[in-house]
Design a protein around this nucleic acid. Structure first.
Length: 563
RNA sequence: GCGCUCGUAGCUCAACUGGAUAGAGUACUUGGCUUCGGACCAAGGGGUUACAGGUUCAAAUCCUGUCGGGCGCACCA
């Protein structure tokens, strides 16, 4: 059990409470932990202010509590606890040193297997900042679930069979410039798609050709089918290169073209079971009685819509894995669609909880992003722009470094910046992505966190061999105590962020922790302090580095020793 | 029209899900390099939490209404 849980348990036992409303005081002069006593006072029919005074008196004389608290004070209706620094340092610093990467994890989800689907790229289309929000979010939630003890299975679903594919293939054949270009072919397909959409808006008659290509691809034979196979692979390779650069891994990858046939069979079965029916020539799920309207499944021309693949995919997942929960990370605009999909799955008989994890979209100052109109910031554009700027910044600061090292650090900072920008705000906020804002490296940014970490590591490096036994009771500064309290809260943050699927809590926590360290670093010179004190302080900041490291890992960010 | 959602400092966002004096970043003004790394730190000004009611010991948070933005509502994905 972690320190704060233990302390809360002890207080509850001492007061024989089964429920208790703990909060954290607004500033450390009011204590480290507080108990709001409104309800308990009411239950005892007492004025809360007098009631806390009584409680404080009682607890202060409780011998059992003396090893945990230096003081217990009544402050109006709150009972404030001051944790004994010696106990704090023993419990926090030592615990971190013994658990290392495991610090912050818990076993809440033990023996529970959950699946999380995210990323969901379309082949033959651009990979843009909207996808980056999805993948950063999904990946972090996956890591949070693992940290909370769940067996979490990250999967991606790739849409390789829609009309967008045919559009791209159509334009690819028409325009020789793409074939001649030396750029990555997967990247070029995105550009090609954008142009195709524009051309088709200008000349709607050309759609006939696109439909012909679509049918040929779906028939799985012929020249266009072969071209589909080839181009599809370029996209898949391109995605793989992006995932690799971002450090994101999937346990399974599903493709629309591989589940669609199974989906069509399933539709027939569901028609027989009257879960689906014909209406106006189309096949639909009529969900009016659940207040969910109508979900079209097959068009009146007989071609498949999105749910066909999704129903088959869900079935496939439940067949292969014993899941206690199935999570889909998809933007909020598809809320109704997922309610409908989950309802149909429930009617089929799947009882497992299904969660649509929503996030709001990424828009641009110039308006809504759309690969059809070309109003997008692609991954490549963003990455190159940030990389260039960070490469320059890093070179200026490290004239002694070679180009490879500078590039390595600049790339890591680029990735960290992208992810952090996507994760630091809560999922229900629209991100208006301003590339110049994102390319600033001060304030609440990944670079700030990395910079604090690098300075910390630099002190540790300079200290060299001066470690050994540390007397942690020498950590008596208020700033040291504040840091330790903050470090003690890390497991709470992981539990809470995991429960709420909310990475921004972790981002904010890490920022605050680094802020506290920066202040400490400026006010207290570790290397110049007396040898025994120095050892204690080094032990403190080494465990602080571990907490930061663990938190960075949750966000999918590489902690850099130097930058 | 119906449904969902958001509205907090000039701007971008927090606020432990109903708790103490609503906090950060940025911008602006000012101070700090004979430095354990200045991509840093410190100080200052900046708020009727869109508006009006209600619920209670307590409301940015909950309920009702109004205004404003965004999104979705049968063959797009």
């Amino acid at each position: 059990m972690y320190l704060l849980d233990e302390v809360k348990k002890i207080i509850k036992e001492a007061l024989s409470l089964d429920r208790a409303n703990f909060t954290y005081p607004p500033n450390s002069s009011l204590g480290d932990l507080s108990l709001a006593c409104f309800e308990e006072a009411k239950r005892n029919q007492k004025n809360p202010i007098e009631f806390t005074i009584e409680l404080a008196f009682k607890l202060k004389n409780d011998e059992k509590l003396k090893k945990y608290f230096s003081d217990i004070k009544a402050a109006g209706p709150y009972l404030n606890f001051y944790i004994l620094p010696a106990y704090l340092s023993q419990e926090v610093v030592k615990k971190i040193r013994s658990l290392n990467q495991g610090y912050g994890q818990n076993d809440q989800g033990a023996n529970k297997q959950v699946m999380i689907e995210f990323s969901n790229g379309n082949t033959h289309k651009e990979y843009h900042v909207g996808h980056l929000r999805n993948i950063s979010y999904g990946d972090t939630v996956n890591r949070l679930l693992s940290a909370n003890g769940f067996t979490s299975i990250p999967v991606s679903y790739i849409n390789d069979f829609g009309i967008h594919v045919a559009k791209t293939i159509w334009n690819w054949q028409k325009s020789p410039k793409y074939k001649e270009s030396s750029e990555d072919k997967g990247y070029l397909l995105g550009k090609c798609y954008s142009e195709a959409s524009q051309l088709l808006t200008d000349n709607p008659d050309d759609k006939n050709e696109v439909v012909k290509i679509m049918k040929e691809v779906e028939s799985r034979a012929g020249k266009n089918y072969e071209l589909w196979q080839e181009t599809r692979q370029w996209s898949i390779n391109y995605f793989a290169s992006i995932y690799k650069e971002l450090g994101i891994k999937f346990q399974e990858t599903y493709y629309e073209n591989e589940v669609i046939d199974e989906g069509l069979k399933l539709v027939e079965q569901l028609k027989a079971k009257k879960i689906l029916r014909l209406s106006e020539g189309a096949i639909i799920a009529d969900l009016e009685e659940f207040g969910l309207g109508v979900l079209p499944v097959i068009r009146s021309d007989g071609t498949a819509l999105y749910p066909v693949a999704d129903l088959a995919l869900a079935t496939e997942k439940f067949k292969k894995y014993d899941l206690t929960r199935s999570i889909y990370v998809v933007d909020v605009r598809q809320s109704l669609y997922f309610k409908q999909l989950f309802k149909v799955l429930e009617l089929i008989g799947y009882k497992q909880p299904m969660v649509h994890l929503t996030y709001d979209f990424v828009t641009l100052p110039s308006g809504m992003m759309s690969s059809r109109t070309g109003n997008v910031i692609t991954y490549k554009f963003l990455r190159d722009k940030l990389f260039e700027k960070l490469f320059t910044e890093t070179s200026q600061r490290h004239q002694d470094w070679n180009k490879e090292k500078i590039a390595e650090v600049a790339l890591a900072l680029t990735i960290a910046t992208i992810k952090f920008e996507m994760l630091k705000v809560s999922a229900d906020k629209i991100i208006t992505f301003n590339i110049d804002e994102a390319a600033r490296f001060d304030g609440f940014t990944a670079c700030y966190l990395e910079y604090g970490y690098a300075r910390l590591k630099s002190v540790v490096r300079k200290a060299g061999f001066s470690f050994g036994f540390a007397d942690l009771s020498l950590l008596v500064e208020q700033r040291e105590k504040d840091l330790m309290i903050k470090m003690a809260k890390y497991p709470d943050v992981i539990a809470s962020a995991g429960e709420k699927y909310n990475p921004s809590e972790v981002a904010k926590y890490l920022f605050e922790l680094v802020q506290m360290f920066s202040d400490y670093y400026h006010e207290i010179n570790i290397m110049k302090s007396a040898p025994k004190v120095r050892r204690a302080r080094l032990a403190l900041i080494k465990s602080l580095a571990q907490v930061l490291d663990n938190g960075f890992r949750i966000l999918g960010i590489k902690a850099l020793d130097e930058m």
